[in-house]
Each structure stands twice: as structure tokens, then as C-alpha cells.
Amino acid sequence: MSFSPLKIVLFVSEFMVPLVIFYIVGYGMLMKKNVYEDFVKGAKDGMMTVVQILPTLIGLMVAVGVLRASGFLDLLAKLFTPVAMLTNFPSELVPLTIVRLFSSSAATGLALDVFKEFGTDSYIGTLASIMMSCTETVFYTMSIYFMAAHVKKTRWTLPIALASTFAGIVASVFLAKIM
């Protein structure tokens, strides 16, 4: 059996979720907590969160669905083809990348559209999954956080946040390629 870095990464993928569950439930039992009752209580909270996001999801999936059906997303992807040719980044993901900076839920809508159009396990689908997992809503987060501290001048926050987002995207492209 050979040990390539890729194998280790895929191994982590496979084991991460069960491992986290094992560790947390095991720790809870060691501490003699009522793990099942706690779980049920938490599960209820989790479901409430989903119910709360349902309206936004309906709104955004309809908006993205309309854009897709009208052919506008294809037009957008075509417009970005030159950029994509230069950078080796799929043009279909350019709208997702831009929207991701502004709104997490709108980006989710677009990512789901990518899954539908290209499949979750295609190169584009994999790349979209990794990208969505390693980036945050830059502008939204900045605006609500700085509002809380009543700050107007954000100094170097934006350039560095964008640089870090860019680094995450470059890493995603590299990882999706070798998978």
C-alpha cells in the first residue's frame, strides 16, 4: 500500500464525521451526562434553524432558478470565458465566486444550481463544494461586525480578507484538480 498525500486527505474525509461524533458522544458518556436527552434537545434546535432558513432558501432558489431558466447564467459564464481561459478557472463558477463575497445564502442558491447542472462529483461540482467551504461572506461580515463597534474606517481589513479568500480559492482549484 502506498501512502500518497491525496490518500491521507481522502482518509480524513471519510473518517472525520464519524470520529467527531465518536469523540463527542464518548466524552459525554465519560462525563456521565444524559447524552441522548441532550442530543434530542439539540436536534430540535437544529431543526428550528433549518425551518428559519427555509423562507430565504425558497426566495433565493427561485431567483437563481429564474436566472438559470432564462439563459442568463449561461450568458454570464460565456462573458467570463476569457478570464477563465487565462486563469484556468471554470467560467461557470465566476458568478458563484463573486456572489459569495456578498451573500452566503445567494451563493448557496448558485452552488445548488451548479450541483444540478454539472453534478456534485464533477470537477466543477467538487471545486464549488470546496470553495464554498473555505470562504466566508467578506462584505456582509465586515459590515455587521464593524457596525457593532461603530467603526467607519476599516484600514487593512478588506485587502487582507480578499487576499485570504483568494488564497483559499487557489488552494481549492489545486485540490479539486488532483482529486
Binding site: I8, V9, L10, F11, V12, S13, E14, M16, V17, T120, D121, T126, S129, I130, M131, S133, C134, T135, S164, T165, A167, G168, V170, A171, S172, L175, A176, M179
Partner: peptide, 15 residues
């Protein structure tokens, strides 16, 4: 579905 966990951790780490 969980195949992306490992790569996502690496990409998150990089950023």
C-alpha cells in the same frame, strides 16, 4: 458527500 471534508480543511487552513 463527505469526500470534500479533507480538501476543505486544507483549503481553510491555507486561507
Amino acid at each position: 458527500p463527505a469526500l470534500i471534508v479533507g480538501p476543505a480543511i486544507i483549503a481553510t487552513f491555507v486561507s
